[in-house]
Nucleic acid binder design. Structure first.
Ligand SMILES: NC(=O)c1ccc[n+]([C@@H]2O[C@H](COP(=O)([O-])OP(=O)(O)OC[C@H]3O[C@@H](n4cnc5c(N)ncnc54)[C@H](O)[C@@H]3O)[C@@H](O)[C@H]2O)c1
Ligand SMILES: NC(=O)c1ccc[n+]([C@@H]2O[C@H](COP(=O)([O-])OP(=O)(O)OC[C@H]3O[C@@H](n4cnc5c(N)ncnc54)[C@H](O)[C@@H]3O)[C@@H](O)[C@H]2O)c1
Lengths: 241, 241
DNA sequence: CGTCGTTTGTGAACGGATGCACAAAGTCGC
DNA sequence: GCGACTTTGTGCATCCGTTCACAAACGACG
């Protein structure tokens, strides 16, 4: 399962039915996985793929895959499958990846540097517009192809490059303040790495990546397994009612 | 993830009341958030908290919080709230954080180094048992308090330190092989950063952290917002050629 | 041109998660 | 000791996502 069900978070008003994008959140979260699988197939020279194979490659059930894709339109051919290139295009378009999104990263510490150094974003529709830090000792330093700019330039960068997505890689203590500045500057999508719950106005989308939480979820299951192996203690359950 | 979900609830008879680890997955995923909020409260000297406040701090609805906590037992006091320290203990115990889990990180690149440098894991119940890499140029190098060991030592480290959790921070091309080795060595919980779907046997738990996917999900919503702002029905899919 | 085999797209049943609303259970002041 | 007030724990209705299963749609082939 599932780290990635859907992130319950920023403003999701029930009355927000204005333009129903029509694609369920759970589906949106899986489209990038399909896209990755499709790229892998295309690179191997595969031109057509059936839902079964694609589903296997993406690690999901084929009925789910078909239902997911059906939300984008009817792009399959019965009796044959899906045209890989065409589906790549359609999924990309649905996700809004026909353009390259500029992203600003705030915080050039361990994590911010790793992100800035990562080459994989460019090929997936993202471009690092700036890497910002408030520490003067870091400003001007080269990280990969980027130079660290001072955090004061946040508003200028967002405005001049029309940045819609920001990543927060600062310590938790400064994260809310950074978030507020991003929002004030016009950023409406935020990827948060700091271990706290950000508060944002309606209309701003926050997703969090919290590695400690992921480990703790793993720990829960690990504990459950090892307790089960020991057996009796909390064990068999079921049986009587 | 995928296959690992099948395991949990094989026998879930209505009316079983014994204390099985029967905590819903969605609840497990939120417990770490509650725990973090509780620690923050404790640090501020708060000794007692009502579900409303804690829920706000954790960014959830209070009914959900109470229902989540009710799965651990009945640890609240009606008319008062929850004792912060006691709840910290109970949530920690439920998550299996009364012990410190050794974690092995495979891949000492950008991401692996950031993880190894991160000080926040220790306080949350985890200890980096080893940082491994196959690149001889990296072996022996100091990262924070750790020294990079050669990937060949994976099995030895897992065995000697009884490692149950592994993090994969290698390129996608080597990730499945590394995963197989971890599983063979006895690791049953894996945190995967490489952008591919790992295949694991039943009984092994995989969680993925995929930053590109997170960004792509944000891009989807950002696109949706900006399309809505432009106004009318710039109907993305629809038109049936 | 019709039949056959294949695969899509989806209706419908199911199950889990969410949130409301309230009775039960407890505290606190007097 | 008692009544008023607070807050928990949960039954219930609802919603969302998953999965099954199958008819409709399509290509291939004779
Ligand atoms: N490194 C990891 O593996 C890891 C793991 C889990 C969580 N996190 C979280 O990610 C965040 C970043 O982690 P890190 O290891 O990179 O921390 P870090 O301390 O190495 O880097 C933080 C950087 O943010 C900068 N900064 C602080 N306040 C700022 C502000 N107001 N504006 C701009 N820059 C500011 C600091 O100068 C520093 O360079 C933290 O919240 C951390 O808890 C990191
Ligand atoms: N850095 C990021 O911000 C970022 C973002 C998204 C995804 N990722 C993913 O995380 C993974 C790691 O990213 P990175 O930037 O650290 O990559 P990297 O190339 O900097 O580091 C990978 C490291 O893994 C080592 N390695 C390769 N094969 C190995 C093996 N079989 N055993 C042990 N070590 C091996 C390499 O020597 C290298 O040091 C990649 O899969 C990447 O796609 C990284």
């Amino acid at each position: 399962m599932s780290s990635t069900l859907a992130q319950p978070d920023a403003g999701d008003q029930p009355g927000d039915r204005s333009w129903d994008g029509g694609i369920p959140e759970a589906t949106v979260a899986r489209l990038p996985v399909y896209l990755r699988a499709l790229y892998a197939l295309a690179e191997r020279g595969v031109t057509t793929v059936a839902s079964d194979e694609l589903a296997t490659a993406a690690g999901v059930n084929s009925a789910k895959l078909r239902k997911d894709l059906s939300h984008l339109g009817s792009y399959g051919i019965r009796g044959v499958g899906y045209d890989v290139d065409y589906l790549v295009y359609q999924v990309s378009r649905a996700l809004g990846l026909t353009q390259s999104w500029p992203v600003v990263i705030v915080g050039a510490g361990n994590l911010g540097r790793a992100l800035a150094n990562y080459g994989g974003f460019a090929s997936r529709g993202f471009r690092i517009a700036a890497l910002l830090d408030s520490d003067p000792a870091l400003v001007g330093r080269k990280i990969g192809r980027l130079v660290v700019s001072h955090a004061d330039e946040l508003e200028a960068v967002v405005a001049s490059q029309n940045v819609a997505i920001g990543a927060i890689a600062t310590p938790a203590a400064s994260a809310q303040a950074v978030c507020d500045r991003l929002v004030a500057a016009g950023v409406t999508s935020i990827l948060n790495f700091a271990p706290l719950v950000l508060t944002v106005p309606d209309g701003v989308d926050v997703r969090k990546v919290d590695l400690s939480i992921e480990l703790q979820i793993l720990a829960f299951h690990a504990q459950r397994r090892s307790a089960a192996r020991v057996g009796q203690l909390a064990g068999p359950a079921v049986a009587e009612a």
